[in-house]
Nucleic acid binder design. Structure first.
Lengths: 112, 112
DNA sequence: ACATTCATTGCACAATATTGCAATTATACT
DNA sequence: AGTATAATTGCAATATTGTGCAATGAATGT
């Protein structure tokens, strides 16, 4: 690819390292909130919608993104859809990120 | 905030959960490549530039983002700047993400 | 002080991400 | 089959991210 060409944007479609897409799924306040909510156990859409105070379509898309990287799975019970964590290791990830962020803030504090 | 208002975009500046910003730093092919390169040891800008084949300014910004979340630190040696991993735990994160992604692909394969 | 060299910032453009509303699709239930 | 309800998709608007070039800034060496 010519270096002079401006490509812009993020990852030019779905191409590239699947891990960046994976981390992207975690790089959102709303999606983190959803994951933390689902940590309590499976929840239906209504519960998630009223918790996050966003349009149903937005929630649907966030959930779809989380499903597309294997973090969340869905099942139906009667009329309503339920969503649940599909890989509990995501909380190891979040917890480690929390620690790392906290430690870094600590380092910053000490520096000033 | 009125619900009808279209806010668009990602996280409206630096606000919100610092962890989503943290994950954002990892949600990039280029930045992952930089981190994996720095895993070998400290590298100067030239080495990173020629490895990634991007403009120096782009590398500078990626590195700045990684520094802003405490993943990378910089030091100067003579004229040139060196960059190094500032929190080795980032590789635990990447490795776990790699495993999780692989396992999920496996699950997908088995489903079809 | 001056020049050189490297890193960063300002700017513009391209592309993606997030959101809300409206319309559509899917699926229980009668 | 028909209807009602819930979830998803299409669309448009807006914010943010990624990139390259040019200009600026910072620091070293003469």
């Amino acid at each position: 690819m010519p270096k002079g060409m401006k490509m812009g944007g993020r990852m030019m479609g779905g191409m590239g390292d699947p891990r960046s897409r994976f981390f992207m799924a975690l790089a959102s306040d709303q999606r983190l909130r959803i994951l933390l909510l689902l940590k309590e156990g499976p929840k239906n859409s209504q519960e998630i919608i009223s918790e996050l105070n966003l349009d149903a379509s937005v929630i649907s898309r966030h959930l779809m993104m989380l499903r597309n990287v294997g973090l969340v799975s869905a099942y139906k019970e009667g009329v309503t859809m339920f969503f649940k964590i599909d890989d509990e290791r995501v909380f190891q990830l979040i917890d480690l990120a929390t620690e790392m962020t906290k430690d870094w803030l600590q380092r910053m504090q000490n520096a000033f």
